[in-house]
């Protein structure tokens, strides 16, 4: 019994952390700019490959990982400037940006294939080694993910809620015209939101690359998961998807334990569909868009 508890608790925390890290950037872009970034999964892949490349040229992991995350911020900013910003103000921006970000994602994915080839690679773990908790064998890499994720999400919360720049980002999320009229640099704030989202995607990629094999198409499954988490949690806030990520993580862990791996996706989707029939705005959503 105690083993069941440890299994589900650990599995839930691990999957939940991973989902939260995948989804939070997607939610950040939606809440500030009001578009879905369909290249989010590709950005996770690119983050992992950039980190891998930096290690390949001889940097130690502790330098390569932060550097890759910063570089991804720049990539996100560039992506925003090239395929999102020119479209802002168009009435059909949501659909158009789905297409432009998908296209950009496809380009990046094929670029990665050309540059790094199809052969699977792996990143070093955040921390090497294994341990046992409550009779369950776990890797220290997984423990690191469980610890780092809440710290990063907490830092993001502090940034959004306790700094002037974060306040400006929350304002842009709520009313673009009024943001212009108090003198906010709306385009720069959009760029910042996209940059932070891409950095968070890069970190998620580094998490994934440390325990699974990397390939140029490794981002498509996490993108799908992130979309599910964001829709389920409510696309109107950043905190909703974070709670949803952990909830889904624990649900999956419990299903895995009691019903087996094959039933988990079916059960998850059944529950999601039922919940979205009752609360189409998502379980943690309020009616308006906003960062909190």
């Amino acid at each position: 019994m105690s083993s069941a508890f440890a299994d589900i608790a650990f599995g839930g925390l691990f999957q939940g952390s991973l989902y939260a890290m995948m989804a939070v950037g997607l939610a950040l872009v939606w809440t500030t700019i009001g578009v879905f970034n369909f290249s989010h999964g590709v950005l996770m892949m690119l983050g992992a490959y950039v980190a891998w490349q930096l290690i390949e040229i001889g940097l130690p992991a502790w330098a390569a990982f932060p550097l890759a995350i910063v570089a991804m911020g720049g990539v996100g900013w560039l992506l925003q400037a090239s395929v999102v910003r020119p479209l802002i103000g168009r009435p059909n921006i949501v659909l158009v940006v789905v297409i432009t970000t998908l296209a950009a994602g496809s380009l990046i994915e094929n670029g990665a294939l050309t540059v790094w080839g199809p052969r699977s690679k792996q990143l070093p773990s955040l921390i090497a080694g294994n341990t046992t908790i409550g009779g369950v064998g776990v890797s220290l890499h997984q423990i690191a993910i469980i610890v780092i994720t809440p710290v990063i999400l907490g830092a993001l919360w502090l940034f959004l809620n306790r700094t002037r720049l974060g306040l400006a980002m929350r304002a842009v999320a709520q009313n673009e015209d009024a943001s212009h009229l108090v003198g906010l640099n709306v385009t720069a704030l959009y760029g910042l939101a996209f940059g932070i989202a891409a950095s968070l995607a890069g970190l998620a990629g580094i998490f994934i690359g440390g325990y699974r094999f990397m390939s140029p198409v490794m981002g498509s499954d996490p993108l799908l998961k992130a979309l599910i988490v964001v829709v389920f949690g409510g696309i109107s806030s950043v905190s909703g998807p974070i709670f949803a990520a952990y909830l889904i993580g624990f649900f999956e862990a419990a299903c895995n334990y009691y019903f087996g791996l094959y039933w988990t996706p079916t059960l998850l989707f059944a529950v999601l569909i039922l919940i979205l029939m009752v609360r189409p705005e998502g379980i943690f959503a309020s009616r308006s868009r906003g960062l909190a």
Binding site: R164, L167, R170, A171, Q174, N175, V182, L184, S288, G290
Partner: peptide, 15 residues
């Protein structure tokens, strides 16, 4: 800004 507090709005005004 419906989800900001009055204090937040005033801070934004002075941005």
């Amino acid at each position: 800004f419906p989800d900001l507090s009055i204090g937040d709005c005033m801070a934004l005004g002075a941005f």
